[in-house]
Measured scan of single mutants.
Amino acid sequence: TETREFDNEEEARKEAERLRRKGQDVQIRKKGNRWELRRT
């Protein structure tokens, strides 16, 4: 599992969408005042 953190939700969602188009399974969750993007 690979995780990346983003400062805002929009960036996290854009990156998640990009990875999903490549066929990756991605989850986003709020972590304090940041957003965590998890690739499984």
Rank of each mutant, 00 (worst) to 15 (best):
R34G: 09
D7G: 05
T3H: 09
N33M: 06
G23S: 02
G32H: 03
R4V: 14
R34Q: 09
V26D: 00
T1S: 12
R18K: 10
D25S: 13
K22M: 15
K22S: 11
T1G: 12
L37W: 01
N33F: 05
E36M: 04
N33C: 08
V26K: 00
I28K: 00
F6K: 00
A16R: 04
K31Y: 06
V26A: 05
L37V: 15
D25W: 13
E10V: 08
R21C: 13
E5D: 08
D25K: 12
T1D: 12
A16E: 04
W35K: 02
V26I: 08
T40L: 13
E10Q: 10
D25E: 12
D7L: 06
D7A: 08
R18G: 05
L19V: 03
E9N: 03
N8I: 05
F6V: 02
T3L: 11
E15T: 05
R21N: 11
E10A: 10
R18N: 10
D7T: 07
R20H: 06
D7C: 08
E15W: 08
T40K: 10
D25P: 09
R39Y: 15
E17D: 11
E5H: 09
R38I: 15
E36T: 05
E36K: 02
T1F: 14
Q24V: 15
R29Q: 11
D7I: 07
D7R: 05
E15L: 04
E2G: 11
I28C: 04
N33W: 03
A12G: 02
R13W: 11
K14F: 10
R21S: 12
N8R: 05
R13P: 00
Q27T: 13
R18E: 10
E2P: 09
E15D: 02
Q27P: 00
E2A: 12
L37S: 02
A12E: 00
G32C: 03
R29K: 10
R21K: 12
N8P: 00
W35H: 02
R29H: 13
K22T: 12
Q27A: 08
L19M: 10
E5R: 06
I28Q: 00
W35R: 01
G23H: 03
E9A: 06
E15N: 03
I28W: 02
E10K: 08
G23V: 00
E11D: 13
R13H: 11
I28A: 03
E5S: 12
N8Y: 05
E17W: 08
R38L: 15
K31P: 01
G32S: 02
E15K: 02
L37A: 02
G23A: 01
R34T: 08
R13F: 12
E10I: 08
E11W: 03
R29G: 06
T1R: 09
A12I: 02
